[in-house]
């Protein structure tokens, strides 16, 4: 029983990282229906930006007290901003021209951008995995015999907090309104005086900034990062977004947590080599019975 809860805690923390990546994925998908394969690489880029900022701040290990909040805050904001800008650039250079070219052309450019980003990171920080400073105190809280680290708590809080913030942002701000209008009907939105280009660019900014945030979190959590990480993580996060119902923020978070938990339990009970098979089998079965994901609504296809 003890191991069950230990695995659950681990799965939830892992799922929190997937959830953070999936939130950005789902936002971008929601507005232009593009499977942005480069999103996973923006996430990795976020961990490298964080590494650079931490280096500039002189952080090479554990930070305690109020300085922790300052250092982490500066790093997160910096990495998120930089990733957001990268996101805007990617949209402007690689996707905007293809907005009316069907769905496959942007899919292929997304793959191209993903390759380019991976190569840039490989040249920038080398082809080997790079160590990331253990910023957070390694204290482990004992909750009924199950160890929970501060970082695990932080990951989960961040994931849920971000989701709630985004929900508020999308439903209660002018920009959120513009986003939803653009997603629903671009022409009508233009007629309502919404600047489509700006709205889409801003969505990319927010989505990519979230990827940057996730990059910092995973770097701190695993104390390591690698230019090739984004591929696998992006695939899982996309799976999470679809499992929850793509375009749906709460769904992306739910999907992320579920996939983290499924992975943990599959590794525990079936062995690590079956964890990906289990995740994708559950994905397929879920979609067979709920064709729009867990929280998605079945809507008639747009014409």
């Amino acid at each position: 029983m003890h191991e069950f809860f230990a695995q659950l805690v681990n799965g939830i923390a892992l799922g929190g990282i997937y959830a953070l990546i999936a939130l950005g994925y789902t936002m971008v998908y929601g507005i232009i229906e593009l499977i942005n394969f480069a999103h996973g690489d923006v996430y990795t880029l976020g961990s490298f930006f964080s590494l650079t900022i931490l280096g500039a701040l002189g952080v090479s290990g554990e930070v305690r007290g109020p300085l922790l909040i300052v250092d982490v805050g500066v790093t997160i904001i910096g990495a998120a901003m930089l990733c957001g800008i990268v996101g805007i650039l990617i949209e402007r250079l690689a996707y905007r021209r293809l907005r009316f070219a069907g769905r496959l052309a942007p899919l292929i450019t997304a793959i191209g951008v993903s390759f380019i980003l991976e190569n840039v990171m490989q040249v920038w920080r080398g082809p080997s995995p790079v160590a990331f400073p253990a910023v957070f105190p390694t204290h482990i809280y004992n909750v009924g015999g199950v160890g929970i680290s501060l970082l695990q708590l932080a990951v989960v809080t961040l994931a849920i907090g971000t989701m709630l913030l985004l929900e508020f942002f999308v439903h209660h701000t002018r920009f959120g309104q513009a986003m939803r209008a653009t997603a629903q009907d671009r022409e009508a939105a233009t007629l309502m005086g919404i600047d489509i280009n700006r709205t889409i660019a801003l969505t990319f900014f927010v989505g990519s900034a979230l990827a940057g945030l996730a990059g910092f979190v995973s770097g701190a959590y695993y104390q390591s990062t690698w230019f090739f990480n984004g591929f696998g993580a992006g695939l899982k996060a996309f799976t999470a977004a679809v499992l929850g119902g793509i375009g749906n923020l709460a769904g992306a978070m739910l999907g992320g947590f579920l996939i983290g938990i499924i992975e943990s339990f599959a590794t525990w009970k079936l062995g690590g080599q079956w964890s990906n098979v289990t995740v994708f089998t559950i994905l397929v079965l879920t979609l067979v019975f709920r064709p729009a994901g867990l929280l998605g609504e079945v809507t008639p296809e747009k014409v």
Partner: peptide, 8 residues
């Protein structure tokens, strides 16, 4: 065995 494509 380790799973592929993961850091966890």
């Amino acid at each position: 065995h380790l799973a592929a494509d993961t850091q966890d």
